[in-house]
Design a protein around this nucleic acid. Sequence first.
RNA 1: GCAGAGAUGGCGGAGUGGUCGAUCGCGCACGACUCGAAAUCGUGUUACGUAGGAAUACGUACGGGGGUUCAAAUCCCUUUCUCUGCGCCA
Length: 431
Amino acid sequence: MIDINLLRENPELVKENIRRKFQDHKLPLVDEVAELDKKRRAAQSEIDSLRASRNALAKSIGALMREKKIEEAEQAKLQSKSVNERIAVLESEISVVEEQIKKDMMAIPNIIADDVPLGKDDSFNVQGETFLPAEEKPFEIPYHLDILESLGGIDLDAARRTSGNGFYYLIGDVARLHSAVLTYARDFMIDKGFTYCIPPFMIRSEVVSGVMSFEEMDNMMYKIEGEDLYLIGTSEHSMIGRFMGEILPESSLPQTLTSYSPCFRKEKGSHGIEERGIYRIHQFEKQEMIVICKPEESDEWYEKLWRYTVELFTSMQIPVRQLICCSGDLADLKYKSCDVEAWSPRQKKYFEVGSCSNLTDAQARRLGIRYKNTKTGKNEFAHTLNNTVAAPPRMLIAFLENHLQADGSVDIPEVLRKYMGGKDKILPVRK
RNA sequence: GCAGAGAUGGCGGAGUGGUCGAUCGCGCACGACUCGAAAUCGUGUUACGUAGGAAUACGUACGGGGGUUCAAAUCCCUUUCUCUGCGCCA
């Protein structure tokens, strides 16, 4: 959500931003909000002065009662009652206007960074740097599910029976590898100075509606029956929710946190659940990083964050690239965003394993996350960023494909061995 | 889960229908005193909205939501959380 003051003072800038995101259908919202805002302010000042006169009347009634001037007090009561009636009418009018303003403001996208490439959809996303050579293998790489099965590491049939499509049993060394990656990712971020945090895996609707739109909520979130609770779709939800309505001391910034959680997603719409495998599923686990910082520091943090993910993947000898999200593909709350994509030697292309975003103050404004600026003495909205460290089992697809050997075994890179009990290989099982 | 008590400014803690945005203490900021500091004294110190260059003025908010009343921190309903006791449980 952008600052309504920006819209008042510079509506053209807001409109230009909408055009850059190829959302021309939202252009009328800007003038609509400006109009409604004027109306709201006029009504508000009328209400304020009515309330002032009512307050004065109420005070005088108190005085009259003490002086036992009952007649005059009764007169004033009647007068006050009629003022109240007028206030009630105006209040119901203003609440309609305010609701519409809020709805419109939610739909108006955050101002995007100057260096975001322009384009109307994901086909205009731009490749950034690549890391480690993306090489083809001298033998054919099977589909990831076949690799998992050859290692005796997965049972999807049973998962479909117990839970349905989009769930999995990971077994043996593969399950251990899954945990090893998460633990390594956790320690990696702790070494970068981040604070480890395990958040609640369920959150209230109040928090959910703060961190996402109704549409997203409907497409992603699982609700607990009979409770005001939702399963989190990512730990970002509960991690950012932690700071809702807070005024942080400036000295506590930046907050650099790395969190672990399982993630639950309906995956309604989008591409849906894939028939074969663990690419898009209802449940996965994720090591995440979030940063809450002062506005002037968010650009710098953004660059650091996505590079941490790159460093993590390259330390596991997985080739990756940065894919810069273009204006039209950027979610409304985002100032800029990029994906870290891992190389798939089977498909001979990169696929998404992480996503890094700088939301500037848009998310903080919605949730009321502020800090006390010691220079100005004012409370200002902080900037929020989030990024994936590692999210298995999806990232295991890249892992397995890149480390598969001609004999069917999978090499464990040096950095993970201590989390695998010293193993340097996962061997295929004999049928 | 049941019963009782509670939720007030950065913190502690008064206030139980009307001059209460809220006594007081701590903390913090500024000033005086001092070579400097401590102590002391003085002044200031909630947030948000609207108007204003500013001082300021008006409005709103005493966990959240709703109600009673001319008037609510104060009364009623509801909800969340905390504490105490009982029950249950990894």
